[in-house]
Simulated scan of single mutants.
Amino acid sequence: MNKPLLALCAFLSLIPASLSAQEQRVTLGWGRLLTNDILGDGRDRWRSGSYSLSRVRGTEWSGALPATAGQILEFRAVGETIAPADLLVADPNDRRFVGALTFGLHTHFDWHGIETSLGANIVITGPQTGASDLQSNIHDLLGLGEPQVYDTQIDDAFYPTAQAEMGRRIALSNAELRPFVEAQAGVETFVRVGADLSFGGFTREALMLRDGPSGQRYRAVAGSRTSGLSLVMGGDIARVFDSHYFEDGDAAQPNDTRSRLRAGVHWQGDRSEVFYGVTWLGKEFTTQPESQMIGSVNLRLNF
């Protein structure tokens, strides 16, 4: 079993039993989202791939957030690979390879009608994550050339990272609009504003979480579970102040602003559901020649 998978499993299994017993918490739901540029523009580069996994615990879910922080807890684990456009030949003008693992604890609550999320994460980077080893093994399995970019990847490090998001749901005639503001300080420091628009029952009375790499929202606790198709779309722009995913002195440096546009389709059946979304990512660093498209998928199939 590879290092990232071991770390994800270990994190999710180490839920404090005393906390669970004291507050009579139960698992309200799981959220997961797989994102990869192969599912978007079909090219293995830059924001190459990620997997977000969340376990949500609380005393109950009534279809709306509680008014008090700490009643709903989300245990989050994210594995992400960021890569230059060419893995086989190092390009001094491209960004460095990044392997990152994130483990965090977040709480979700309603603050005077505003959906609020506060979280504390630890982001682990470098060869210690095992991301480069895993990708190298995949290349060997497929008979591809040996990547030459791992020797210059971002170094081993641990970055405490704080995260907050505030949004407000606005009901429209047959849709729901949710403007939001997000702030993060740590491995990357930025302030982001944006909005999400949804048609159908996908987000109705559900606890929705935001995927960091793509910005897509994924459902962790189901609400009305209305059968049929739902459409979601959104966009945001961030002011970036710092990023430890880049090295001082490199030609590639983070842009001051970062933009995203996204859309997705969700199908809900009696027992199963499928989500697929695409996200356009604007140029993230100074020497990036073009934008990219990544895809996200979530399958819940019960037979």
Rank of each mutant, 00 (worst) to 15 (best):
G145P: 05
G145Q: 07
E146Y: 15
E146P: 12
E146V: 14
E146W: 12
Q148I: 01
V149F: 04
V149P: 06
Y150K: 15
Y150V: 10
D151P: 14
D151G: 14
T152A: 15
T152W: 12
Q153R: 13
Q153M: 06
Q153N: 09
I154D: 03
I154N: 04
D155W: 09
A157K: 04
A157R: 02
F158E: 04
F158K: 10
F158G: 07
T161K: 11
T161D: 02
A162I: 08
Q163Y: 12
E165P: 08
E165G: 11
E165K: 15
E165F: 06
E165V: 12
E165D: 01
M166H: 07
M166W: 13
R168S: 05
R168L: 06
R169Q: 12
R169L: 12
I170C: 11
I170F: 14
A171Q: 02
S173D: 13
S173Q: 07
S173W: 12
N174Q: 09
N174K: 11
E176H: 08
E176T: 10
L177T: 03
L177R: 02
R178G: 03
P179D: 05
P179H: 06
P179E: 05
P179Q: 03
F180Q: 03
V181A: 14
E182W: 07
E182S: 11
A183D: 00
Q184W: 03
A185N: 01
G186H: 01
V187S: 13
V187K: 12
V187P: 07
V187R: 12
V187L: 13
E188S: 14
E188H: 10
E188Q: 13
V191T: 10
V191W: 06
V191K: 13
V191M: 12
G194D: 02
G194L: 08
G194W: 04
